[in-house]
Design a protein around this nucleic acid. Sequence first.
DNA 1: CCCATTACTTACACTTTTGTTAGTACCCCA
DNA 2: TGGGGTACTAACAAAAGTGTAAGTAATGGG
Lengths: 118, 118
Amino acid sequence: MGARKQNSTYTSNEKYIVECDLTYAVNKIGGRWKILIISKLEKGKMRFGELKKEFPYITERMLTLQLRALEQDGLVKRTVYAEVPPRVEYELTEMAAAFGPIFQQLSEWGGKHRKLVN
Amino acid sequence: MGARKQNSTYTSNEKYIVECDLTYAVNKIGGRWKILIISKLEKGKMRFGELKKEFPYITERMLTLQLRALEQDGLVKRTVYAEVPPRVEYELTEMAAAFGPIFQQLSEWGGKHRKLVN
DNA sequence: CCCATTACTTACACTTTTGTTAGTACCCCA
DNA sequence: TGGGGTACTAACAAAAGTGTAAGTAATGGG
């Protein structure tokens, strides 16, 4: 009972869309926090708590969710140290580091666009 | 009565996030259909109905919404011809065309990533 | 024994995004 | 008069994304 009704158009559209490598790529870094997290990690490893401090209003839940998704997608490597209290470090994978130059260009585009439109 | 309660954290986080030029840029092309639409328009002007045919399962509503958003953001130019039945043509602006090389790289990244992860 | 610390997890609520269905205006043509 | 064609629009509903509030495990230190 209570199995979620699978909205077929919603789902099949999603599949159709992600066939495009470009959309696929943008989806990997979509969402509210992923890009910001990746940007911070470009400077090196960080602990969960350190990341949290970087973003004044992020909730632990959101940070966890985003990091998990990034890990799942092979963009972030998570290392747990068996200590108490726990210590967990996050760092970018090569795949994520490859975004570097692309991010640079996108960022420039964003800057220019913002000036033109606003 | 019934004014929507403005969730302040939701909204203020949104503002905070978009201060980043990179996130700002990605937001402009985020959403389910925008990238695909831009990709099609890279080949030249298209009418509403032509665009619709390109995407088998998009609804008219979604296509309209996305085109409106792109227009609003200065990525697409909309030209209405005063005919009956109506004719409306969409084309990319320079700002959108500037995405070209970036899209190329993102797309390559997507292709590589897909092979690695799946 | 109790508390602090860290990195989470859970259940719930709100907001935005996406899709469904039906309908509109306009004029030409039969 | 009435249907066809085009590019929409409106009211509603489903789904995903994001935020709230509270709680957990484990252990060292007081």
